Simulated assay, not measured.
Amino acid sequence: MHCQPHYQGPVYIWLKSEQSCLLCDEPADTPQPICTACETELPWLGAHCQVCALPLPAAGLTCGQCLKQPPAFAQVIAPWRYAFPVDSLVSRFKHHGKWPFGRLLAELLAQSLQHRFTEDLSPPDALLPVPLARKRLRQRGYNQAAMLARWLGAILHIPCDEASLQRTQDTPSQQGLDAKARQRNLHQAFALTPGVEVRGRHLALVDDVLTTGATAHALARLLRQAGARRVDVYCLARTPKPGTSD
C-alpha cells in the first residue's frame, strides 16, 4: 500500500489578495499566505557554521565539530533557527497533518534557495528526501521530507528522487538522543536501492529539521561512497547547540 499523499493542485486555496496569513489570520500582502510582519518576525538563522549551519555568534565561521570531524555533506542550507513559531509550524505539519504549514515553509525555503542559486550555490541534479521508517510511515501516513522535496522540486524545477534511498531498519526515534546515540542508532539503517547510479552527481538531501546532523551525515556518506560528487542538505530549520539560548 502506498501511503504517501499525492495532490494535483495546491494544498491551500490561492486567492491572491484574499489570502489570510496562516500565523495571524490578517490579510496576507505577499505571494505566500503570510503577512510581511509575521515573515519578518520568523527566527531567521543569521550567523551560522558555513558547513552544518549551527547558529554561531559571528558570520563566516566553521564550528569546532566540523573542523574536527568534517561531515560527509558539503553544506547545510536552512533559513531558520528551530525556534517559535517555526518549531510549532513544523510540528503541526509533521505530526498533525497540517500540510498548509509545510507548504508555506517549503515555498519560503525555495525562495531562499533561488536567491542562493543566483549567488554562490550550485543547483543539485536531484532532491532526495530522507526516507522514513516503515513503521512510522504507516502510523503517520506520509513522509514530511518527501512532501517538502516534491514542493521544492516543483518550484525550483529540480527532479525529486524518492526511490534511490531506502531505510532498511526501523530504528527508534532520534528525538531525545545525543549525537553519539544518534550515530549508533543509525548504524546500517540506510541503503541505496539496487541498480541506482549516483556516480558523479550533485545531490541534495531534504529534511524538515537538522539537529546533530547524524542522519544527514549517514546518508551523505552512503552517497559519497557510491560515487556522488557532492551532497548538500536542504532543511527548514537548524537547532542551536544544546545549552545555548536563542
Score class of each variant (00 low, 15 high):
Arg221Val: 00
Lys16Pro: 00
Thr212Asn: 06
Gln19Pro: 05
Leu219Asn: 06
Met1Ile: 08
Leu67Glu: 13
Arg138Asp: 06
Leu156Tyr: 12
Pro43Gln: 11
Gln183Ala: 15
Leu156His: 09
Met147Glu: 14
Ile77Asp: 03
Cys52Tyr: 11
Gln175Phe: 11
Val196Phe: 10
Tyr7Arg: 15
Gln139Pro: 03
Ile13Trp: 14
Pro129Gln: 01
Gly97Gln: 06
Phe117Leu: 05
Gln75Pro: 03
Pro129Val: 01
Val198Thr: 08
Ala154Asp: 14
Phe93Lys: 01
Pro43Gly: 08
Leu109Cys: 15
Gly102Leu: 07
Leu203Lys: 04
Arg134Ala: 14
Leu148Cys: 09
Phe84Asp: 13
Leu219Phe: 09
Gln188His: 15
Leu54Asn: 04
Ser17Ile: 08
Pro194Asp: 05
Asn143Pro: 04
Pro70Met: 07
Ala179Tyr: 12
Gly243Tyr: 11
Gly9His: 15
Arg199Asp: 08
Asp161Cys: 06
Thr36Lys: 12
His48Gly: 03
Gly60Phe: 01
Ala47Asp: 14
Leu186Ile: 05
Lys68Val: 00
Leu148Pro: 14
Ala126Ile: 03
Gly97Ser: 01
Glu162Asp: 05
Glu18Ile: 04
Asp208Thr: 07
Lys98Val: 11
Gln139Tyr: 10
Asp125Thr: 02
Leu67Gly: 00
Ser112Glu: 12
Gln65Tyr: 04
Leu152Ile: 05
Gln183Thr: 15
Gly46Trp: 09
Gly60Glu: 06
Pro57Thr: 03
Pro124Ile: 00
Leu45Met: 06
Asp125Gly: 13
Val130Trp: 07
Ser91Thr: 13
Leu132Gly: 03
Pro159Cys: 02
Thr36Ala: 12
Gly227Ile: 02
Thr168Leu: 10
Pro31Ala: 00
Asp207Leu: 07
Ala204Gly: 11
Glu18Pro: 01
Leu121Asp: 00
Val231Asp: 07
Gln169Pro: 01
Leu152Lys: 08
Leu22Ile: 03
Thr62Phe: 00
Gly64Phe: 02
Tyr82Ser: 03
Asp161Ile: 05
Cys3Lys: 13
His187Gln: 15
Gly200Arg: 09
Leu127Phe: 08
Gly46Ile: 02
Gln174Asp: 05
Leu15Pro: 01
Gln75Phe: 03
Asp207Thr: 10
His95Met: 10
Ser122Lys: 02
Pro57Phe: 05
Leu219Trp: 09
Thr171Tyr: 07
Gln19Thr: 10
Lys135Gly: 02
Thr239Gly: 06
Leu128Met: 05
Val76Asn: 09
Gln75Glu: 12
Thr239Lys: 08
Ala163Leu: 13
Ser17Met: 07
Leu45Ile: 13
Gln19Asp: 12
Ala28His: 04
Pro33Asn: 01
Ala237Thr: 07
Arg201Phe: 04
